[in-house]
Computed example of a mutant assay.
Amino acid sequence: MLNVKIRHLAVLSLAAMLIASGCGSKNTASNAEEAAPASSATADPSAAEPAVKTDKLDIKVSFYPMYEFTKNIVGDLADVETLIPAGIEPHDWEPTAQDMAEISAADVLVYNGAGMEGWAQQVIDSAKGTQLVAVEASKGLDIMEGVEEEEEHHADEADHDHEAGEHAEEAEHNHEADGTAEEGHDHGHGHDHDHGGLDPHVWLAPSLAIKEVRTIEAALAAASPENAAAFQTNSDAYIAKLEQLDQDFKAGLKDTKRKDFITQHAAFGYLAKEYGLTQVPIAGLSPEQEPSAAQMAKIVEFAKAHKVKTIFFETLVSSSVADTIAGEIGAKSAVLNPIEGLTEADRSSNLDYLGIMRQNLEALKTALNE
């Protein structure tokens, strides 16, 4: 078993150095394990245990999907803690000096990558010389370009797709045209909060979530070889659920009346690509990005022309933009959840990644068949 090495002097020196260099932020320190629902496979009594050093792997994860994937792999064979507090938008979070010291003292850091955690490379660099193993879950995947610079004409392209009347073929063309289907892009490390122009939301396509789980599993098996067989067994069981989810998405979205959906946050490019849909985002990758008046006008024009009856917004941020457009065209607004963190309502309803993704599927089926 890989024993956790307590490096008091090194950690204290690192914390002092980071505080002096201004690496801290106003964000709170790491939270407990995202308060995973009791009925979920991710729930575990160890979540309530105090942070006592044991011979288990000490694993820090960046935000909720990484917790869900990692916890389903390790079960009770490791201690897993989420860094970004529940209810905090992950795009906005920065680690404090205390967070960075705690990461350096851990055995493993699991993060999504592809620019989602702009702070990751700084933390990894600061932990050089410690035992920390950093796991980028999206490593090796085809990372798509974002739509930050494209949204002004995105609605026009989607409008053209409708006029052509070739939804299935044009959905793929639209992704290629707006840059969201670029493959083979090296996403690397060290992007800041605009994701470096890349779309990090790979976990929202179940087929890609499966690949992330396998990447995490391989790294954890290397870090704790004596538990490798158990990790694989756990991963196989969880991946079977993800594979069923993928099949349900394929079946549920195959023959919908329409193939486009309007969303406030451009987080669903991978989901759209996997299931032959067209995402029409009001704004770009950042959920806090405010669309211009021209962008709003184009979306309203598109929605009216194509009788869109649902405008999607996401959890953890204001729905005001989606509500404004919905009110303008006499539509309703509804949630399409990017699963960047569990809300209090999610936790009280015992929802996890699988449950929320099924809610997303039902929301899409309803909107695309109106």
Rank of each mutant, 00 (worst) to 15 (best):
F231A: 05
Q279W: 04
R214A: 06
H189F: 14
N227C: 06
D178A: 14
A230K: 12
I262F: 10
A171D: 00
K250R: 13
P291G: 05
R258G: 07
T215W: 10
Q247C: 02
E170C: 12
S207F: 06
K273G: 12
G184P: 13
D199W: 13
L285C: 12
T215M: 04
H173V: 04
I262M: 08
N227P: 01
P200Q: 07
I262G: 01
E288T: 06
A267Q: 13
T263S: 15
E182H: 14
H265T: 05
D246I: 01
E217V: 02
D192K: 09
F261S: 01
D255H: 04
H187D: 11
H195E: 01
L198G: 10
N234W: 05
A272W: 14
T215N: 15
P287E: 03
K241Q: 09
V280M: 01
L204T: 12
D246T: 11
K250C: 01
Y238G: 09
Q279G: 09
T233A: 14
A237K: 03
S224V: 05
D246Q: 10
Q264E: 05
E217R: 13
E212V: 06
A267Y: 06
D246K: 05
Q289Y: 07
K259N: 11
G269F: 02
I210A: 08
P291F: 00
G190C: 00
A219I: 10
L204S: 13
L208N: 11
D194R: 10
E212Q: 15
A240M: 02
A272S: 15
R258E: 09
E183C: 08
H189Q: 01
Q247V: 03
G252Y: 01
Q232G: 05
G188W: 10
S224E: 15
A218P: 02
